[in-house]
């Protein structure tokens, strides 16, 4: 948690949003990021969330939210309907990440994604030394936890973007809650990454 009261990656995402933007948050949870952006940047926010309890929490937070699966709901929005489309910690849980990211860039002028980096050295050591499949940095989960996460690394995501000619505008890396500069060994050192895409 940062001084904004948001999870560290959400703090980074919030810092990228300009006042009065139109923002779509995919997998918006209880709506705290949208609430924060409405209160501090007067954005127009929309959220999509699957879980009934979280949808109720969003409405309690005064946020516009649709219950549904991202793979279906994203189809409804016209081209460039939003300034920014956010996907925080959603990538490892998607059935079809390419479809989602492509459509984020269709309905939004830009997309911002955040994810934990399974390339972090602790993850690597977990498999190498202890023989356990690594869980996301800072989010210990057994391999059989539900929903199942499919881990990815910063290198994986960079390759993914290059292959699809998705332009990375900015990339911010976190070690815990602290921002760290990009270096040759970022994929070893960073626990989280936030990518701004166009």
């Amino acid at each position: 948690m940062s001084r904004t009261g948001l999870r560290a990656d959400l703090g980074v995402i919030a810092s990228l949003i300009e006042p009065e933007e139109k923002v779509l948050d995919l997998g918006c949870g209880d709506g705290s990021l949208l609430r924060y952006l409405i209160d501090t940047k007067r954005i127009v926010g929309r959220g999509v969330e699957l879980a009934e309890a979280k949808v109720l929490a969003c409405v309690r937070n005064g946020v516009a939210v649709r219950q549904g699966d991202l793979h279906e709901e994203l189809r409804d929005y016209p081209e460039q309907a939003f300034d920014t489309v956010i996907l925080s910690y959603g990538l490892p849980y998607l059935n079809d990440p390419a479809f989602i990211v492509t459509n984020m860039l269709r309905v939004g002028k830009r997309a911002v994604v955040s994810f934990p980096n399974w390339g972090h050295w602790r993850c690597r050591l977990s498999l190498l030394l202890r023989g356990h499949m690594p869980s996301a940095p800072g989010d210990p989960q057994a391999w059989d936890a539900a929903p199942r996460a499919r881990g990815l690394t910063i290198a994986d995501f960079t390759t993914f973007c290059t292959a699809r000619q998705i332009r990375v505008v900015t990339a911010t890396f976190l070690q815990g809650t602290r921002r760290v500069p990009a270096r040759f060994d970022t994929n070893l050192r960073a626990t989280w990454a936030v990518f701004e895409l166009r």
Partner: peptide, 12 residues
């Protein structure tokens, strides 16, 4: 959603 309305939806 397509017309840009502020819509909340829950399938209880």
């Amino acid at each position: 959603s397509a017309v840009g309305a502020d819509v909340s939806y829950l399938n209880i």
